[in-house]
């Protein structure tokens, strides 16, 4: 069953609209006709078996992956994959979405502070002083006030992921995209990242989270998307779907992850 989140959470602006998204790598169809809407200030969790296309949807949303067809709209910036678009349009779309990767993807040759402040200077044109100040404020919020002069590889995985979150937040995105942010971390260390994400959700950030953390999906997200075989098979209230999934494939997946 696929519910429109507007029906459950009325009166909120649609910040993200993905329409008729399709992507294949050679013969292999990864996504076909994916449609989704994300409302402002909500957390949307995406779950599903490996290879379902969850990460690809996320990567198509900021054009790290070029879809074969479909449109992506984030905060009013629209890109139609089948039409030519300018770099200006591409960068405008990317600026409105912050992305957090499974493997952090920090810049190892820069200090933690520089990782967070350089993109602000280059992308938003902030001065160094302004960028450093904002970076320190965010690092402090992430509990990393003393790490500014360290290099990323001297930090733990959980710290590196929080640095990556700070780096993305520093550009004031409208939406944060999380691509399995805790999958490369020990469960205990993953917890500190999930805490930061909960705090971020509580502050009203719009978030799309691809995850295998079922309790996060159940307790934090307002909307749940289940993907399988390159398409969305179920969408709606997380607690309802977790309790009584309607699609047989969802039932099978949830049995596998919840009863281990």
């Amino acid at each position: 069953m696929i519910e429109n989140p507007q029906d459950r959470l009325p009166g909120r602006r649609e910040v993200v609209r993905v329409r008729n998204l399709a992507k294949s790598f050679g013969e292999n169809t990864v996504l076909s006709d994916v449609n989704l809407t994300v409302l402002e200030g909500t957390v949307t969790a995406m779950i599903g078996p490996s290879g379902a296309g969850k990460s690809t949807v996320l990567r198509c949303m900021n054009l790290l992956e070029r879809p074969d067809s479909g449109t992506i709209e984030i905060d009013g910036h629209v890109i139609d994959a089948e039409r030519r678009f300018s770099n200006r349009e591409l960068f405008a779309l990317r600026r409105s979405a912050g992305m957090v990767f499974q493997h952090f993807n920090l810049f190892p040759h820069m200090t933690v502070l520089r990782n967070v402040s350089l993109p602000q200077q280059r992308v938003l044109g902030r001065s160094k002083g302004e960028a450093d100040e904002r970076a320190m404020a965010l690092l402090t919020r992430m509990g990393l006030a003393d790490k500014g002069e360290q290099y990323p590889n001297r930090c733990s995985g959980g710290q590196q992921q929080r640095i990556a979150i700070a780096r993305a937040l520093a550009l004031d995105p409208k939406v944060m995209l999380f691509d399995e942010p805790t999958s490369a971390l020990d469960p205990e260390v993953g917890l500190e990242v999930l805490e930061v994400m909960k705090e971020l959700a509580a502050s009203g950030m719009t978030m799309i989270v691809v995850t295998h953390e079922m309790s996060f999906a159940r307790s934090v997200s307002e909307d749940l998307i289940v993907m399988a075989d390159g398409g969305i098979i179920e969408q709606g209230d997380p607690k309802r779907i977790m309790a009584e999934p309607s699609h047989p494939r969802t039932q099978e997946f949830l049995r596998a992850v919840l009863q281990r």
Binding site: N105, L106, F107
Partner: peptide, 29 residues
């Protein structure tokens, strides 16, 4: 690493900036 280049792209950095700040400083080392 390709991941760092994607990280830079996802932040909205231009190709020229990615070369200048991410790829060249590490590549020549």
């Amino acid at each position: 690493p390709a991941g760092e280049i994607e990280g830079s792209q996802a932040l909205g950095m231009t190709t020229a900036d990615t070369l200048r700040y991410i790829i060249i400083p590490q590549g020549w080392r």
